[in-house]
Design a protein around this nucleic acid. Structure first.
Lengths: 202, 202, 202, 202
DNA sequence: AATGAATGAGGGTTCATTCAT
DNA sequence: GATGAATGAACCCTCATTCAT
């Protein structure tokens, strides 16, 4: 097995186990055993358990960002791009439930909190696609005049919750429901006087 | 100190410590020390650490349910009740950031997952207030015709995300923003043809 | 077994094992097993292995200091007190070969070096009995006019070396030899013009 | 790099690191890295870590013995030869503090102990220069009539202690102090009735 | 000869839980 | 009821050594 394959195998196995058993329910030895490597080998690729957990997050972030970037249209009506973007994200999360569950656990653990604290400092501007879209929309006075964080929450949060329900089996997300939800999110962020409501009717 | 006081003290101390350091960053001995009891004493009130963690969740759930129930108006226009309900929840979470952060950590840990699995079985119908309201709204054809889980996500998720941002200092939630967000959530769930859009203008 | 007894047992067992196998040849588990306690118990009395090693040194230092102090005469001719002091030390080391070997290993390991570095800072004036004696002797112009460290080395170092040889079986230290060596050390430190040489003849 | 150069480089790097961090504070990988060779390469020159540590000791012993032998005068008054010998040793240790510190650590570790045990068996008669000198001196009734080990300790131990103090910065060894200490050591070993004391005045 | 990735036994340490007082 | 000393399984991590390249 090549070196890179080993790293990938470790990441893949770790993701699965950590999602299933929680960060503290998975000894390094368990990861090693399932990845068919020695414990020490993991430490050639990751400085420690914490670093492995962070690395998994970054791996996943890279993957989701790539997925979005490669499919996202840079032109077209804002509303259409918004709906399309939401659709992509929803689809990605449904297709990669492991990633979704890892993200949820990571973000709501001390790891995620400290990660966000670090990010606050070196503001690299993540989620830039969404942010760019919103900035354009704000300038065009198409969306509500509230802080961009609020817009972001209105646009994204329901998707996250729905995916969670979907994964837990409370609801089944089909194409129709995905579209409807994406549109509902748009309703939440757009200005909703009749005029701009009219743009739907065009 | 009375027996009940001890239990309360343990719960209060544990909540604080667990939120700050994560479930696995808090030894029982640390809780005992901060609560001014012996380690063994905790085991008189809770069967073990896991049970303590579950008990904390239940305490908190009781508290939040009570807060909602005691303030929620059973009459009035659906939209107004919806906005009011959202406002109560938001306010509760802002006033009790410890509860909020505990919930987030709990829900996204193996504890929360297994708890939800248990609930799936003995469907007790939590969140009944919201559900009742939605059922009424669906019957009145005021809200979109999508699964109730989707409605629930659209109504609640953005608030959760915003509170998280607020607690982390990304955004400051004042009364205006709370109202605007609650209304945006309503926009997401309501039927948004011009007619029902008009009901806002009434 | 009382708590204090346990601490003593751990110290005693640790001393023996560490002397025999070296600091790094003795796992905590080995100490625990021989002391008939659980591994964790050691950590109730010592913060960690390093601290245990330091504690052993201090234990031993206290013991040796006490042994010297309780027997040392505060009056009498300087030469007699010097010889007596050397005798006490020699006897102590011969009687407690474990202590001697522990000291040697400790002093010549990174532990001892860092300990001495710490002591340099908070100069507490150890070995004060010897130092006091020397200061008196210097004032009386009985000993050589060289730095006190040099005097100290001349007075003590040969004893240490001899004890080492004794323990290794290269030489057998009997009372005669002890006395002769102590006197030879005195010859090394005293002013050795005929006049002060004469004080021996008095 | 030639093979021999590699061996020398490994030895030199290892000496430095082992002195600074202790035998157990230096992984083989650290030595390899600092010597710019692969870990495996070290094992071509030394059978294992223990053997490396022994080899370092032997290198050093060879070096010190050579230094003494090449400078030591085989003729002259015993006292002068004694003083000269002590001077050589002292100078060597001061010039090679790394060797000194290595020796101290080695001798007082299980390595040194087992080495000495081995030597006991195949009595090779080390320190022969000193021993020869002493035997000559004993025969000439110039030194005290005590076991040769005792004489050796009196002659050498203070120097060792002083060098240690010097390296640790407790005292500064200049030429004067070196000479004075060497003479004091002579005072310790020589017969010190006035007559032989007079030989100093000659 | 040289490399360095891989190994895995072994070590220090933690901490949930128990139970004699 | 309350205490907290004692327990020991289990964890993370290190590093001497090997061996395929």
């Amino acid at each position: 097995m090549k070196s890179l394959d080993k790293r990938k195998e470790i990441i893949s196995v770790a993701m699965e186990l950590l999602v299933e058993n929680g960060f503290h329910g998975v000894p390094m030895s368990m990861i090693a055993a399932r990845a068919n490597v020695a414990v020490g080998t993991i430490y050639r690729y990751f400085a420690g358990k914490d670093e492995l957990i962070y690395a998994l997050f970054q791996e996943l972030e890279t993957s989701i960002t790539a997925a979005i970037r490669e499919r996202f249209p840079t032109t077209g009506a804002i509303r259409e791009r918004f709906l399309y973007l939401n659709g992509i994200i929803l689809q990605y999360l449904i297709d990669n439930p492991l990633h979704f569950r890892y993200l949820e656990q990571f973000m709501n653990s001390p790891y995620g909190v400290s990660m966000r604290r670090d990010r606050l400092l070196d503001k690299e501007g993540r989620n830039d696609i969404f942010m760019t879209l919103f900035e354009e929309a704000i300038a065009a006075r198409i969306v509500k005049d509230i802080p961009i964080n609020a817009l972001f929450s209105l646009a994204i949060a329901p998707l996250i919750f729905l995916v969670r329900d979907h994964i837990l089996g409370f609801v089944t997300l089909n194409e129709d429901l995905i579209r409807q939800t994406a549109e509902a999110c748009w309703d939440a962020v757009r200005r909703n006087d009749c005029e701009s409501g009219a743009d739907r009717a065009r």
